[in-house]
Design a protein around this nucleic acid. Sequence first.
DNA 1: CACATATACTGAACCGGACTCACCTTAGGG
DNA 2: CCCTAAGGTGAGTCCGGTTCAGTATATGTG
Lengths: 193, 193
Amino acid sequence: MPSPRPLRADARRNREALLAAAREAFLADDDAHVEEIARRAGVAVGTLYRHFDTREALVAEVYRQEVADLCATPARLLAEHAPDEALRAFLLLLVEHAAVSRGMGEALESIMATDSPVFDDAREEMARALDDLLAAGVAAGLLRDGVTGRVLLRGLGGICSMRANGWQEDAIRIATILHDGLRHGAASAGSHP
Amino acid sequence: MPSPRPLRADARRNREALLAAAREAFLADDDAHVEEIARRAGVAVGTLYRHFDTREALVAEVYRQEVADLCATPARLLAEHAPDEALRAFLLLLVEHAAVSRGMGEALESIMATDSPVFDDAREEMARALDDLLAAGVAAGLLRDGVTGRVLLRGLGGICSMRANGWQEDAIRIATILHDGLRHGAASAGSHP
DNA sequence: CACATATACTGAACCGGACTCACCTTAGGG
DNA sequence: CCCTAAGGTGAGTCCGGTTCAGTATATGTG
């Protein structure tokens, strides 16, 4: 039941306008108030709320595609690199994406460090992608065992939520440390917790 | 000029009451609204704001002592353990403290992952403490070089800001990974970035 | 084409929570 | 005692997200 009724023409138009306005507002990280987004879309707040249950839902929707792409990346990286290199690349990719816009950072943080049900799907998909990455690394004896995608997801949450002054540089450094930590104690070296 | 004028008796009493009420409210993590704290202290909001510029300042003050103790810990740990063990212990200690109360988590996060000027002192003190810890580890060839206290501070911010469901267990795991990451690539093993 | 009505839009109002300020109270020195 | 500056009060403001009664219109139908 994906289409109980196919959306009236004006409704579809407004929905698009809202998503576009939101995307734009989230990129230019002028504070993106709900009112402001509605105004930019040439629409009243009420309309925004007809289409999206909550501000958070709007964020989720705006970044849905991008997040989906992100979730598909590990598989692609695994096809081309050793699992540990794939992991490193993925971590840096996340930092980069978080840097692109405040909105994307918000989205990633909500996926990673909260329980907000709006992001349940994204969270699960992301955890699965990470699990694959980790499993491949473990199988190859390159990464330690016993770390779930969920744990790693939450570890990354910290990185994505950073907004302080020189955060990006620091985030990269931290991603590196996490990466090294996961390699440390790989099967070839022994030492399970 | 620490005491331009020594605070009137009732003022001092109220200040104490506010700190006590705040401490209590932050521990029982019932949402600790400013109004609620004032009420518990038997005082009006205005009075709260006479003593503390902002809610954040109140948080900072409540945890000032605790944070100071925390900042003193690395030195103590270094006196008793090898630097890498000291680091591990400190990371776990932080998780533990963040777990004690939402307020302490808030405080730690503000110290670590924001630029809020209210926490400038704490931040600097904490960074210095971490620098000592790191320097000792580097000198002993147990920890990698090139990581500043500030970077580590921010990495920990992620841990402290986690509030999702099974966060504590995950936080411990992540702390472990960070710890291993810092050991990996120590001087004895080479590999500077 | 008229019109019925489900669907959609509007925006003023509401709500929660941090913060302010014009006015009142009182501690405590002289 | 009493004067007055330090201190306290709490209704009110501000800010953002969210709601809902009232109004407009797209579209299927006769």
